[in-house]
């Protein structure tokens, strides 16, 4: 069968110690037997490693930060599209999703497809809305409340027992054992990611995760559960292993079917000693460890592009249990000319 030729533009090329999902998503797409992809990287910083990984990324363009607003972003995408004829756009950062979702109609008119959660799905799974989400979809979630300042925390402090988890809107989470630590982490996270900060009940147990894909009609296209076996000081997985866990898969199916989730997602769960599963977060995109799912038999990045193209995708019904990933760092040697070209022209 002839492969479908498609140009995919994506972000998340920061394959650093706390990596974005771009490079793993590209690896899945490059290994696809159904797609013949040309990869266009979208980078924010001059030193994102993916820019210089020419065996994976055909060309990279620098793009403005989402915080600069929708218009500068769309102008840049319009320019890239004129040069490259983008077929599918995959935003790999949480912070980009809102901008791209808001622009879905305009992108479609330009001929660029995306396959993302709806604005409603995106909003209701927000960390600050998790208690309502849990109630609505009958999923166990830790008690949490958003705060805008430390005065707010003093007002609700008695509803919690220490330790508590202090979380950023998009990224970052720290366990705080007293009011002083809450104050330290509040300031640290707010300075980096803005407000609100979410204070979450601390659930003792083992963190387990699921990477999954919903077709937007309530069907699970694929789902692979994993446990991080080695965690960095930033809380990122250095190693992980696929699990055989029907309860995690049932929970994923329930969330996807009830929300009619559209696109990739990562469920962050805590399994307690009593084997109860608590949903602590839904990330509305494929995670950086998605290549483990590809290697276990579920090429979810490929499914994402096929769904974006309006193709019928048969759900995956199996994956290899006990498949491991181990991250490693590697010093890529680059020519100064390449760095110069990207930093001055914004293209490489």
């Amino acid at each position: 069968m002839e492969k479908i030729k498609v140009t995919v533009a994506l972000s998340g090329l920061n394959n650093i110690d706390s990596p974005g999902p771009g490079v793993p998503v590209i690896r899945g797409l490059k290994e696809s037997e159904l797609l013949d992809v040309r990869i266009i990287g979208l980078a924010y910083e001059n030193l994102e490693p993916g820019i210089y990984m020419h065996e994976l990324v055909d060309k990279t363009y620098k793009v403005p930060y989402p915080s600069d607003g929708v218009e500068p972003f769309l102008d840049r995408i319009r320019y890239v599209h004129e040069q490259e004829n983008i077929g599918v756009l995959i935003p790999n950062f949480d912070s980009e999703l809102f901008t791209v979702m808001k622009s879905e109609r305009i992108l479609k008119e330009m001929g660029i497809r995306v396959f993302l959660p709806t604005l409603q799905q995106f909003e209701e799974r927000h960390k600050s809305n998790l208690p309502e989400f849990g109630k609505k979809y009958e999923v166990k979630v830790p008690y949490s409340e958003p705060i805008l300042n430390l005065q707010d925390w003093r007002g609700i402090e008695e509803k919690f027992n220490y330790p508590v988890v202090v979380k950023g809107k998009f990224y970052d989470a720290h366990i705080a054992y007293d009011r002083e630590q809450v104050s330290i982490y509040f300031n640290k996270i707010a300075a980096k990611w803005g407000l609100p900060i979410v204070i979450q009940e601390f659930i003792r147990g083992t963190e387990v995760n699921v990477v999954a894909m919903g077709d937007g009609k309530g069907n699970t296209i694929g789902a692979v559960p994993m446990r991080k076996t080695y965690i960095t000081d930033k809380g990122k997985a250095w190693g992980g292993i696929t699990l055989k866990d029907s309860a995690m898969l049932e929970l994923t199916d329930r969330v996807i079917s009830q929300t009619r989730w559209r696109g990739g997602m990562e469920l962050e769960l805590i399994r307690t000693a009593k084997q109860e599963l608590y949903l602590i977060e839904i990330n509305p995109r494929l995670p950086a460890w998605v290549y483990l799912a590809v290697a276990s038999g579920q090429n979810l990045p490929e499914a994402l592009v096929l769904l974006a193209l309006g193709q019928e995708v048969k759900p995956f019904d199996e994956y290899e249990v006990g498949k491991l990933f181990i991250r490693y760092s590697y010093d890529m040697i680059c020519d100064l000319k390449a760095f110069e070209k990207f930093s001055t022209t914004g293209e490489l």
């Binding site: 083992t206 992980g240 699990l243 055989k244 866990d245």
Partner: peptide, 11 residues
């Protein structure tokens, strides 16, 4: 056979 034990549920 080598004595390696793997708990597929917990990893």
């Amino acid at each position: 056979e080598s004595g390696f034990v793997f708990d597929a549920g917990a990893g």
